[in-house]
């Protein structure tokens, strides 16, 4: 019985990772899925969940300073600091 509980607890540790991340979106992060589908799609708007955090952060910086061309992301990225973008990128990267 004890062995079973330990096994369940260990499994819970593994299960918890993405779920705890899902529970704690940093400011702004929960809005992204309004346009960026959490599901894999072949749409014009890229999926962000599970992407490399550094890539997302770099893209946000590029949208913000205008070095990366955009239709609307330039206008949105300007509303977030480097630090906020980093937190959002890390959260998006941790989503499945």
């Amino acid at each position: 019985m004890n062995a079973l509980l330990i096994a369940i607890a260990a499994a819970a540790m593994v299960w918890c990772q993405p779920l705890l991340a899902a529970a704690d979106p940093p400011p702004g992060a929960a809005s992204c899925s309004g346009c960026h589908s959490p599901a894999a799609t072949n749409s014009a708007i890229p999926r962000l969940y599970g992407r490399d955090a550094a890539d997302i952060e770099k893209a946000m910086a590029g949208f913000r300073d205008g070095s990366l061309p955009a239709t609307v992301m330039n206008r949105i990225a300007k509303g977030f600091t480097d630090e906020e973008s980093r937190a959002i990128a890390a959260w998006l990267a941790a989503q499945k």
């Binding site: 899925s33 309004g34 346009c35 960026h36 589908s37 959490p38 599901a39 799609t41 749409s43 014009a44 708007i45 239709t71 609307v72």
Partner: peptide, 13 residues
Amino acid sequence: DYAQTWFATITAE
């Protein structure tokens, strides 16, 4: 095009 994609994404969510 993004407008269409937005609608599909948000309604799916």
